[in-house]
Simulated scan of single mutants.
Amino acid sequence: MTVFDATPCILGEGPLWHPGRGELLWFDIVNCRLHSASRQWDFPEMVSAAGWISQDEVLIASESRIFRFNLGSGTEETLCALEADNPETRSNDGRADPMGGFWIGTMAKAEANGAGAFYRFYKGELRKLWEGITVTNAQCFAPDGRTAYFSDTPTHQVMRVALDSHGWPCATPEVVLDFTAQGWYPDGAVTDAAGNLWIAFWGRGCVEGYTPSGEKLQTYDFPCPQTTCPAFGGSDFSQLYCTSAARDLTNDNPANGQTFAVDTPLKGRAEPRVLL
Rank of each mutant, 00 (worst) to 15 (best):
D144V: 11
I53P: 09
L249C: 09
L71P: 08
E57K: 09
E23L: 02
G132A: 09
W184A: 15
R21F: 08
P212V: 01
G100F: 05
R269M: 13
R127V: 06
G268C: 04
T264F: 00
C32V: 07
A148I: 09
S235M: 10
F179M: 03
Y119I: 09
T2N: 12
G257I: 01
A61D: 12
L24P: 08
F141R: 05
G209R: 02
W130E: 12
Y122I: 10
N113M: 09
T134D: 02
L34M: 09
L16P: 11
L217T: 12
G145W: 00
P223Q: 07
K123L: 13
N251I: 15
L129A: 00
A189Y: 09
W130Q: 08
N196E: 14
G105Q: 04
Q182P: 07
G234M: 01
L79C: 09
S54K: 06
C224P: 07
I133R: 02
A245L: 13
W52I: 01
F150S: 10
D144N: 14
P265Q: 04
N31S: 05
M1Q: 14
V158I: 11
G22H: 08
A96R: 02
I60S: 04
T180R: 14
P44G: 12
L59A: 03
E45P: 15
E174F: 03
T219P: 13
C229H: 08
G234N: 03
L79D: 06
D28Q: 07
E125D: 09
C224Y: 01
P212K: 00
Q218Y: 15
K216A: 06
I29Q: 06
G51M: 05
E111D: 13
T211M: 07
D144A: 15
M107K: 11
P19R: 01
A162T: 04
L24R: 10
V175Y: 03
L82T: 13
G132E: 11
G72D: 14
F260C: 03
P223W: 05
S38Q: 11
F43A: 02
T106H: 06
C206V: 12
F27Q: 04
K216N: 05
E174P: 14
G203E: 04
Q157E: 11
T264C: 01
V58P: 10
D56L: 07
E83T: 13
S48T: 15
T75F: 05
C32K: 03
V135M: 13
R127L: 08
T78L: 08
E131R: 10
A142Q: 08
F201L: 09
A162I: 15
L197M: 11
S165I: 11
N256E: 06
I29H: 08
A50D: 12
I60D: 08
V175F: 05
E131N: 15
T106A: 02
A270W: 06
E83N: 07
K267C: 13
E271H: 02
P212Q: 00
E13C: 01
Y241N: 06
D28M: 14
G20W: 05
R68W: 10
P143M: 02
T75R: 04
A193H: 14
K267Q: 15
E111C: 08
Q40G: 12
I53L: 10
A117H: 12
V207N: 04
T78K: 14
Y210F: 14
D144E: 12
D93M: 01
C32G: 06
L197E: 09
E57H: 10
C32M: 13
R65E: 15
E215C: 14
E88R: 14
N92S: 07
